[in-house]
Design a protein around this nucleic acid. Structure first.
Lengths: 225, 225
DNA sequence: TTCACACTTCGATCCAGAACGAAGCATTTG
DNA sequence: CAAATGCTTCGTTCTGGATCGAAGTGTGAA
């Protein structure tokens, strides 16, 4: 009827329960995969896919392809602000969602991400390596420095095998439990393998959790912390 | 699925085209009647009534009864901020509504509101009276001071008739074209009647517009300006 | 290569909720 | 008082869009 921006389209998108659940999950700042978001929303992956497509289309979300996963995240500060504002309004009126049981904390501390270490431990590792100058960034690429090469050779990584592979040695991987990055790529995989080989940690059979032994955790912190 | 405020309910309300149109109309800061909002939204009064009820229920809107009208306004700054934010998002993606022709400017300058003067002229009148000390506010009530009484007696208002009425002499009325108040009540009505009696102004036959003559406008400004 | 997994697209179903006609209530006007 | 106006409530219709099963695409693992 009048001129002006069309609020309805955007608000209607946020207004669907499934999508709203996804958005609140993403408000943590983490990037989540389509399947994870489907679980958060309580719908099947097909349905989630449609929702995510629509939200990406109007630039509410940002899509990031990584291997066979699609990571979705809140597009920018402006979107986050609006959602936060809506939360404020809802809160004031006493509109709250039903809560479920607490999430598995083990997954947040350490878990496998494809084949490498993720979670708090993974992020901590990444930060330490970067700080010590074992990793260096040039643009989008992540590189293992000579010092880093020596360090990991000492740690027991077999570079003779790794160097032959065509896939990248180091890659940055978005971590969903922390909002930071952790180390992916061939090196990331090799590190996790070595951690298990050393009996510092083991894969949980039922989940993606990585269980550190007491000795293993101490050694990990001693080595990388 | 998770705990936290329920965005969906609020956003879904804003997400309906009819309601979104109403909200954008109200974003001017003006308070509008249910019928006016129905026209803005392009729906019948029944439908508008339901919409307005829902929005009032979750404290997005504020309802104010005035005579046989219901004035609706944006509840508070927080709500306005969220809507403004949504406008920003929509604008950025290029989602705009179709525009219509320009609105009738005459209605904004001067019109009848029930039986008294509204629009820019009405607001100006109200401000001037208040500033000169002819009107005084005590809490919610508006009172005509003794000086005001004398002034309007000079102007030609017949208080002998007005004083007998039980309905309030002075009332504050929300103005939709300006966001300020103008004078309502028996005195408000008497003033408009007197303006017409003096041939300073006349009612438009086709609309609620009040058309001032050149002489009338000059005299009005001279008297009240 | 084959299998498994993550995700998407297609097609069909189904329901919440928007819309309006009709009728009712409240207020003002005449 | 009756008539007109502003608004709301009720009951019904109908459609946009969420949902999921099934099938297709692409990536990684064995």
């Amino acid at each position: 009827m009048k001129e002006g921006p069309d609020i309805a389209r955007i608000a209607a998108l946020i207004g669907d329960p499934a999508r709203a659940n996804m958005l609140t999950a993403l408000m943590s700042g983490k990037a989540l995969t389509a399947t994870e978001l489907a679980a958060e929303a309580g719908v099947t992956p097909q349905t989630a896919s449609v929702h995510l497509g629509k939200m990406t289309e109007v630039h509410i979300l940002q899509k990031r392809k990584q291997g066979r996963h699609r990571y979705y995240a809140i597009r920018d500060e402006n979107v986050a602000d609006v959602i936060a504002g809506l939360m404020g309004l809802a809160e004031k009126v006493g509109l709250t969602r039903t809560r479920t049981g607490p999430r598995d904390a083990a997954l947040r501390t350490a878990r496998s991400c494809y084949n490498h270490l993720a979670g708090d431990m993974g992020v901590r590792l990444f930060d330490a390596l970067y700080e010590r100058g074992y990793l260096s960034r040039s643009g989008e690429d992540l590189r293992l420095t000579d010092a880093g090469h020596d360090f990991f050779a000492d740690f027991g990584i077999d570079f003779s095998a790794l160097d032959q592979k065509t896939s990248p040695m180091c890659r940055e991987c978005l971590d969903w439990s922390a909002r930071r990055s952790h180390l992916s790529g061939n090196l990331g995989r090799a590190i996790l393998d070595r951690l298990i080989e050393l009996n510092w940690a083991a894969r949980d059979t039922n989940s993606r959790a990585i269980i550190f032994t007491k000795r293993g955790k101490a050694a990990f912190i001693d080595t990388f912390g």
